Amino acid sequence: MAGRLTNRMFGLVLVLALLVAGGRSLWLWLDQPVRHLDVRDDAHRVSGQQLQQRIAPLVKGSGWLSVDLQALRAEVRQVPWVHEVSISRRWPDTLRFDIQEQQPVAWWNDSRLLNAQGEVFEPGQQKITERMPNLSGPDERAADVLAYYNRLQSVLAKKQLTITQLTLEPRGAWRFQVDDSFWVLMGRSQVEPQREPRLARFLTAWDRMLSGRRDQIRYLDLRYPNGLAIGWHGQTATGNVSSR
């Protein structure tokens, strides 16, 4: 009885050893060196050839199965204008890279760019020809500034006004420029423009008198409890308009 049990145990150990050896052999057979990089993109500013040149040294000597895809993905995302990348294996020795390019929606602090998610990225050597607003503020508030711009622009667009610059000051005050012309000083504003009484005063004054004199306006100061101040071109003093 004991001999039978010993034989069974020996047989089980032998089967497990064969499975382990077979699995290791299979892994080694599958884990061939990476020989081909397939870069797929619809990008205009990210060169597939440049990406291949950047990626090739990173995978040199790596196996098709053992290559660290997460580390490789993190490295590729550092390439200028790469927003996102997914990497997959293609039998028997190919890695496929699907590249999503950054889509800029605004300038950030004059020299950098924002994408639609409010993420800051560098333009590199690329020449930017798109006309975009210039937003500025602390880097950690970039997404908030973009969100406020979108909400504010949706309100002003009803008056055929376009925000060309929007700034969040270090102490939380907002100011924006309209049509590359005059500035509007908002002060500390609510995050919802539709509920902002100072903006409502501006829109009312715009409809009543300011729209016809837009070329004469240097700035509008809305930081008053019941009115606004107007700075005119060629004048050192300001005019006041009451909302009463």
Rank of each mutant, 00 (worst) to 15 (best):
H83K: 10
V241P: 01
A71H: 01
L51W: 01
I99T: 04
V76H: 08
D68P: 13
V79W: 13
F182K: 00
Q125C: 01
M186W: 00
L16W: 03
A56S: 15
R73P: 04
G63E: 03
P193Y: 03
Q53N: 06
R195G: 04
D68C: 10
A157K: 05
S88P: 09
P225D: 11
L152T: 15
D110I: 01
M209L: 11
D179E: 12
D68M: 14
L220A: 12
I87E: 07
R244E: 13
L14F: 08
P170S: 12
M186L: 11
K127C: 00
H36V: 05
L37W: 05
G118M: 03
A173I: 00
G212Y: 05
V39L: 12
A116H: 05
R89D: 08
G3C: 04
R214H: 08
Q165D: 12
L18K: 03
I128T: 11
A43I: 09
A173Y: 03
A237Y: 03
L5F: 14
A74L: 04
R24A: 08
G239S: 14
A200L: 10
D42F: 09
Y148F: 13
R112C: 04
R218T: 02
Q49L: 15
L228S: 10
L113E: 02
L51C: 04
R45C: 01
A116D: 11
L113G: 01
E130G: 04
Q216W: 10
Q165E: 13
